[in-house]
């Protein structure tokens, strides 16, 4: 419903009033909610925003854009105008495009998921919409995911990191000893993200998201790059370098932790594509490959699905001797 007054026009980020001839009325105020009388707004606070005016109009720019499909009311002198800004019917609703990892099986000391959304999400109270279900009896697993008051959402707002409660994943801590790991080997679970999770405009998802998986034994081994297969491209081409590996790796930790260099240490410009759900990594060089030996260089913080990185286990036994990690693999381009 739009306002009954032809003098007002409404948009998400501006409310405009056409001045009547000679009008010296004080600017209007805007309230959240639908009201029909001024009395109803007496104990309400007006929405914060800036007023600007020119010869013909007075504009109100709210501090935050008006929500779609929500009720607001303008009070102008003795007049009351309720209004809403309708959602465009062709609005594309929020959806989950990928889950990392999306494997059917994860180890019992599995640490985190990354949920890729189609657009920026509303991070507020996001955990209220995410549950882990034990498929044996359909019950919710109590205290499975760590609720952070500031959820870990990427700067672009589309990638949400979910941590399995780390106190239960770390050996010898109280919660681990009393309750054990969150996930039990051979059991099957479903990650459920309900459709009431909203985007930044406050519009919920179209449908629930479900991902089922089973649990294997705990992974207490550091990942190693020595078993990675490198398929070298041909010289004088800009072909992809294709890297494949067997053990699933953590999607986030592969981002930006890889580099291709020459034997003399010069960095090769190009882009990595992390296909962690396919256990592969692609590298597209900016310039053609030369006929020479190159080196794939990895940062030690690359993790497997259980938080074990190339250098150390998630929960390192301090009584064992530390070994220097292997962080480089060379390959020859012919």
């Amino acid at each position: 419903m739009n306002a009954q007054s032809p003098r007002f026009s409404f948009a998400s980020d501006t409310l405009t009033l056409k001045k009547a001839n000679g009008s010296k009325k004080t600017p209007f105020t805007v309230y959240k909610g639908a009201y029909t009388t001024i009395d109803q707004t007496i104990h309400k606070k007006a929405i914060l925003g800036e007023y600007t005016q020119n010869e013909t109009t007075i504009n109100f720019i709210p501090l935050l854009p008006f929500q779609k499909n929500s009720d607001y009311t303008v009070i102008y002198g003795n007049e009351v105008f309720p209004f809403t800004i309708a959602l465009n019917p062709s609005y594309k609703k929020l959806a989950i495009t990928t889950l990392y990892p999306n494997t059917d099986t994860v180890p019992s000391n599995f640490l985190k998921w990354y949920v890729q959304f189609s657009k920026p999400i509303n991070p507020t109270k996001v955990y209220d919409h995410i549950t882990l279900i034990n498929n044996r009896d359909g019950t919710e697993v109590d205290r499975a995911l760590l609720p952070l008051e500031t959820p870990l959402v990427s700067d672009d707002g589309t990638l949400l990191t979910l941590w399995i409660e780390p106190g239960r994943q770390k050996r010898d801590l109280g919660p681990n000893k009393r309750l054990g790991e969150v996930l039990i080997p051979n059991e099957s679970y479903t990650l459920l993200i309900d459709k009431n999770l909203k985007d930044r405009q406050g519009i919920p998802m179209e449908m629930d998201f479900k991902h089922s998986f089973t649990i294997s034994n705990a992974d207490r081994k550091k990942p190693s790059i020595t078993s990675w297969e490198l398929q070298p491209p041909l010289a004088n081409t800009k072909d992809l370098l294709v890297i494949t590996y067997k053990e699933s790796l953590d999607y986030g930790s592969l981002q930006n932790n890889l580099q291709i260099i020459t034997a003399s240490g010069n960095i090769i410009a190009g882009d990595f594509t992390i296909l962690s759900n396919q256990n592969s990594i692609l590298f597209k060089p900016l310039n053609v490959w030369n006929k020479e030996t190159y080196i794939l260089k990895c940062k030690p913080i690359i993790e497997d699905l259980s938080g074990n990185n190339l250098e150390r286990l998630f929960d390192q036994d301090v009584t064992t001797k530390k070994m220097a990690p292997i962080l480089e693999r060379s390959f020859r381009v012919e």
């Binding site: 959240k32 914060l48 935050l64 607001y72 991070p123 507020t124 109270k125 008051e149």
Partner: peptide
């Protein structure tokens, strides 16, 4: 409620940090 009124947004769109 106070924040919701001042910012014109639903409570589930707002968070005290």
């Amino acid at each position: 409620l106070l924040l919701s009124e001042l910012l014109g947004a639903d409570s589930d769109q707002l968070q005290i940090i």
